[in-house]
Simulated scan of single mutants.
Amino acid sequence: MSIQIYDPTLRDGNHAIGHKLSTSDIQAYCRAVDGCGLWCVEVGHGNGLGASSLQLGRATHSDREQLECARENLSQSRLGVHLIPGFAKISDIRTAVEIGVDVIRLASHCTEADLTESYFDFACGQGKLVHGVLMMTHMASAEVLLEQAAKQVKYGASAITLMDSAGSYDPRSTAEKIGLLVKHLGVPVGFHAHNNLGLAVANSLAAAQAGATILDGTMRGFGAGAGNTQLEVMCAVLERYDYETGVDLFKLCAAIDSLAEIPPVAKPTIIGTSNLISGVYGVCAGFEKHVARAAETFEIEPRDIWKELARVNAVAGQEDLIIEVANRLRKGVVA
């Protein structure tokens, strides 16, 4: 079976360094990995197009600057973008298309696919590949995810990717949810893992074994929280299990070695205790830095914030809620 490898190092990885990837970093990375066989390289602010802000973190460069840089330096791998309605506007899709983006991924919280309909209406008319994405999918059953994914397919999605945004999956839950979508959707299904429980590679393999044909991975796992599936390890494991990825593993390893000075390689990605706790509680991995700051400011334990965020079902994009939760905990308001 063939697997398309989707690389969001230059998007999800932005979370790890406060969205401060430079155009020099983007240029160096794209030049190094172009030709390694990666199906698509995704670029942008950690929360996608239009998300650079005080609340979520300001990017060093505009969406246009980042995408134009990547487009100039990718000739073999496709260029992809991530959009979340509310952060991104329809005009952001138009800009991405003008620059020459090949793959548009439209994302929503796992139970809010309805919010993507108007975005699909516009994007599907632009002659690009348009994929649907459901985030924080540990928060919904396989049946609910199928219902929500079917909506995005109805809107025009040519593929659906489930994101384990909190790094809370295990191989059993991965197989259950991916398998149900593969059985019923009729379009390719993808999987995007985080490594909070140390299971990202195992979960990605379980997704492939359940029928997923698109897998996300980032160089050295560079990404939010404990990081993503480690790209090069995932490719090696898939090769061991006789999947065809089109990736030249040794060329990819050489690319990693050539990028010693840029963040995806220079910044180590580890599973810290806070990452582990967020995975146990099932809270968005991208909250890590916000929780750490709030814990220090309000002089409370990070684990208490993670626990309360889980109790109130906080979802990606609700970074402002972290301060509110920390303040309540400090005052002893929360039981």
Rank of each mutant, 00 (worst) to 15 (best):
L329D: 11
A157M: 06
S53L: 07
M163L: 15
T229H: 04
L181N: 03
A295N: 09
Q27M: 09
L197R: 11
E296Q: 13
I84C: 07
A70E: 01
Q230H: 10
N196H: 11
L79M: 08
G221N: 01
E299M: 13
G35P: 01
T273D: 09
E147L: 11
E176L: 06
A113L: 04
Y6W: 03
F191K: 01
S165T: 14
E147Q: 11
V130T: 05
L252R: 00
K20T: 15
E308N: 09
D102L: 04
Y119E: 01
A212L: 11
F222L: 13
A107S: 11
D114L: 10
A207R: 02
I26H: 03
Y119I: 14
H109M: 07
T218N: 01
T23A: 03
G272F: 10
M1Y: 08
S158G: 11
A260N: 09
I93T: 07
E68T: 10
F87I: 13
G100V: 13
K154A: 15
L205N: 01
Y29W: 06
L199N: 06
G186L: 05
S278L: 14
A255V: 10
E244W: 07
V315R: 11
L309G: 06
P85A: 10
D170C: 13
E176N: 02
C110T: 11
Q230A: 15
R105H: 10
G190T: 00
I84Y: 03
D257Q: 12
L67K: 02
V97E: 12
D242W: 09
W306N: 08
H138S: 12
Q27N: 04
G225M: 04
M163W: 12
D320I: 13
A292K: 12
K20Q: 15
C284N: 09
E324T: 15
G246M: 11
G186S: 04
I214W: 00
L67F: 10
K89H: 12
V133T: 07
D63F: 06
G211H: 03
R71N: 08
A294S: 09
G48E: 01
S75R: 11
H184D: 15
L129R: 12
G167M: 02
A224W: 12
H192M: 01
L38S: 00
G198P: 06
V33P: 00
L199M: 14
N313R: 14
A226Q: 05
A226W: 04
V333W: 08
R330G: 02
A314C: 14
K183F: 09
A236W: 10
L231K: 03
L115N: 06
R328Y: 12
G44W: 01
I99Q: 08
A200Y: 01
L56H: 06
G13S: 05
C284H: 14
A294H: 02
R64Q: 12
D25Y: 05
P171S: 08
L180W: 04
G37L: 12
I104V: 12
D34I: 08
L197F: 08
L205Y: 06
M219L: 15
F191Y: 14
L276D: 08
K289W: 09
V315C: 13
R105F: 07
I256C: 11
I90L: 15
L309N: 07
Y6M: 09
P171L: 05
V187Q: 05
E72V: 05
I3P: 01
Q126D: 09
I214N: 06
V153K: 01
E143Y: 12
F191E: 05
L215E: 07
L115A: 12
E239D: 14
L197T: 13
